[in-house]
């Protein structure tokens, strides 16, 4: 199989092109310096700032693989941040590591409960995922506003600030959280049967049930994972600005997470999913944000620029476009051979 036929070739190429464009426009984009033993530079900023979207998109990937969707992630982020900062703000000693740990654990538990609620609606009551998660998407932000009393809760706490802005050795701690989650998810989904079972549920829930796959637990678990990861993202978001901003936290992030999953080549129809693809998708979106800034695209035009790049990537990775291009270029192999290669292998497993 040639490299450009690989599923992740086009998303990776798009990412490389974006970085190259930035580097040509402003060479300092690539510059990374060591400041007081901490790496500093535009690329490091991208890795650090991508953490919330990365976590949310990874959870979304698992949910989408089960043929679902989780629209509530932004609201869960807002609730999680509000819970954590209200606890820290209300405690006698906001600067204590113990206080922050308790706040983080409670916020994650609340997020887990919210995820479990989504999972319950979808897997136990059989409500369509888009409807089930819409409930929390609409109501959750209101709950977050209620917790913060409609104001932005600001907290001065060194351990809290460390989560998003601190460094573990030379790398940003937020980026390390991303790496740990990517690795853990990759191991659990790809080194155990869980990944295959998840894909089976997504490709054909009925057939997998008949084959003895406990689809209810798998779907329920997917929403719980998504909830916890969104909660963690909410804590990183709040830590980054040292404040719980219930209106802005995770606003529209559900759509960017879905976009990242799609850019990474995972189908919204469920089934086959790619964690590596989602990681690349998130980095594309985050780099695109920086590109708009580095090229100096005016605010009014930046959504158009964003849309143009996204459309180009989506079209480039569509198998049909690629086949058509190949046919135009006088491909040596027949089209059928290529499309068989593109087909997911997991169908055999289901």
């Amino acid at each position: 199989m040639r490299i450009w036929r690989h599923r992740l070739f086009w998303p990776s190429a798009a990412l490389v092109v974006l970085v190259a464009v930035n580097a040509i426009a402003r060479p300092q984009f690539l510059r990374i310096t060591l400041q007081d033993g901490e790496l500093y530079g535009a690329l490091i900023d991208i890795l650090r700032n991508s953490a919330p979207l990365m976590l949310v998109a990874l959870g979304m990937t698992i949910v989408i693989a089960t043929r679902g969707i989780d629209l509530s992630v932004g609201a869960v982020m807002a609730v999680s941040g509000a819970v954590a900062l209200t606890i820290i703000d209300g405690s006698g000693d906001p600067g204590a590591t113990g206080t922050v740990l308790v706040a983080v654990v409670v916020a994650l538990l609340v997020s887990l409960v919210l995820g479990a609620w989504n999972g319950f609606l979808v897997s136990a009551l059989g409500i369509q995922p888009i409807v089930a998660t819409l409930v929390l998407m609409l109501a959750g932000r209101g709950v977050a506003l209620l917790i913060t009393g409609g104001f932005i809760t600001t907290v001065n706490s060194a351990p809290l600030a460390y989560i998003a802005s601190g460094y573990l050795t030379v790398l940003p701690f937020a980026f390390i959280i991303s790496v740990v989650v990517i690795t853990a998810l990759g191991l659990v989904e790809r080194r155990t049967a869980l990944g295959v079972l998840t894909e089976a549920v997504g490709i054909n829930p009925e057939a997998s049930r008949l084959a003895g796959v406990r689809s209810r637990g798998i779907i329920w678990g997917a929403y719980m994972v998504s909830g916890v990861l969104a909660g963690l993202a909410g804590i990183i978001y709040a830590s980054n600005i040292k404040a719980a901003d219930a209106n802005a936290a995770g606003f529209l992030i559900e759509l960017y997470a879905i976009l990242a999953v799609v850019l990474g080549g995972t189908s919204l129809a469920g089934g086959k999913f790619s964690i590596a693809g989602t990681v690349i998708g998130v980095l594309i979106i985050q780099t695109l944000d920086s590109t708009i800034l580095f090229l100096g695209v005016p605010s009014a035009q930046s959504p158009v620029f964003f849309a143009f790049v996204v459309v180009a990537v989506v079209i480039a990775q569509s198998p049909r476009t690629r086949n058509a291009l190949r046919a135009l270029g006088g491909a040596r192999r027949p089209r059928a051979a290529a499309s068989v290669q593109d087909r997911p292998k997991v169908e055999v497993a289901s």
Partner: peptide, 22 residues
């Protein structure tokens, strides 16, 4: 230079980070 930060703290921070790198 001028760029939107959407009236939010997060927006202001990330845009300013970009300006500082640039």
């Amino acid at each position: 230079d001028s760029q939107t930060g959407d009236f939010t703290r997060d927006g202001g921070k990330s845009v300013m980070e970009g300006f500082l790198q640039k």
